[in-house]
């Protein structure tokens, strides 16, 4: 265990390596660039690490796929327009149950937007691509949590074989703070999917008939529902007795936590996994409150996810939306 003073992006690199990450395919894009450059630096000093800068994010994603087919824990990092390009390889990983690991640093969108911050890539990361969104998405709300959850991202991807993401943002990526760096107790094993001399595999992602595809999808959906119980995670602060509960995720939740500490009757429900979403627990707390306020730096992407889980309750439901803006106590206070 070591205490280090790092930026969110630097934390990702340390965590990835602690989790067994050996290969990174990257293309620079703000605010994720330091993940790429830091890993490149480390790879020059450490023979066991390999860094490849590709010509764009699409090739980075497909390179990751190639490497993990060969049994290596490979990952990539991107955000914004790069996240869009990444959906082509992510869809392939989703279809073929490949342990794709991606670190996403959200920035203002759509299009080039800002290079700074937002929570506007929730929908894209959870269900971009032309599939059903069978992906696991972790939303850290502190730099320490970035360390913990990056390790979890690798473990979850390799254990359950669904594309798994750490959904960070530009503020956390660039912020600097004290972080505890430790060796994880558990890191998942790998196995190669292609190139095992003991058996031949012919793998495809194209089917001739609707029924063939539906069968594969049904199996994958069943698997995903099954693992949801193990993986769905959340945190609460003062939810049990509060009349008002704020629902927020990521660094917006961190801002709300400060606000809740100063208010008597305001609690916070914070999903740690956006997908699978902690449905039943969210519903349980929401039912008990008199009023819930959904806070996000987007125009409703998180709220849409939440409403899915809360269907049927009659608690007052308010939305506080600040697309591409930070969350500040003074402004939120007016609503509370």
């Amino acid at each position: 265990m070591e205490t280090k003073y790092l930026t969110g992006n630097e934390v990702v690199v340390d965590a990835a390596i602690a989790a067994g990450g050996r290969m990174m395919f990257g293309y620079p894009i703000t605010p994720s660039t330091e993940i790429t450059t830091e890993f490149a630096k480390k790879a020059e000093k450490n023979e066991r690490l390999k860094f490849i800068q590709t010509e764009d994010e699409t090739s980075a994603g497909f390179g990751v796929i190639g490497a993990l087919l060969g049994g290596e824990k490979a990952f990539t990092a991107t955000g914004g327009p790069g996240n869009i390009l990444m959906q082509d390889p992510i869809s392939m990983a989703e279809a073929m149950r490949l342990p794709f690991v991606g670190i996403i640093t959200q920035r203002g969108g759509p299009s080039t937007g800002t290079v700074i911050y937002s929570q506007q890539e929730v929908t894209l990361t959870c269900c971009g691509g032309n599939g059903e969104g069978l992906r696991v998405v972790y939303s850290p709300s502190s730099l320490q949590e970035i360390y913990d959850l990056t390790i979890k991202t690798f473990n979850t991807a390799w254990k359950y074989r669904f594309p798994t993401f750490l959904l960070s943002d530009g503020y956390m990526a660039k912020a600097r703070q004290k972080v505890e760096i430790y060796r994880p107790q558990y890191i998942s094993t790998t196995k190669h999917i292609l190139g095992d001399a003991r058996k031949i595999v012919n793998i495809r992602n194209t089917y001739s008939q609707e029924e063939e595809l539906n069968e594969i999808l049904s199996e994958n959906i069943r698997d995903f529902e099954h693992i949801s119980r193990d993986i769905a995670d959340y945190d609460t602060y003062k939810c049990t007795h509060s009349k008002t509960i704020i629902f927020a995720h990521g660094s917006a939740a961190a801002a709300c936590l400060e606000i809740c500490k100063e208010r008597k009757n305001v609690g916070l429900f914070r999903p740690i996994t956006l997908q699978p979403f902690p449905d039943s627990q969210a519903k349980m707390f929401a039912k008990r409150a008199q009023k819930i306020i959904v806070v996000e730096s987007s125009a409703g992407q998180f709220s849409r996810l939440l409403k899915n889980s809360l269907y049927g309750i009659s608690t007052i439901y308010l939305e506080y939306q600040r697309p591409a803006l930070g969350i500040f106590e003074e402004e939120l206070a007016r609503v509370l």
Binding site: F62, G63, G66
Partner: peptide, 9 residues
Amino acid sequence: PVMAGFKFA
């Protein structure tokens, strides 16, 4: 790009 990634691994 997929096969290049595989060759690296």
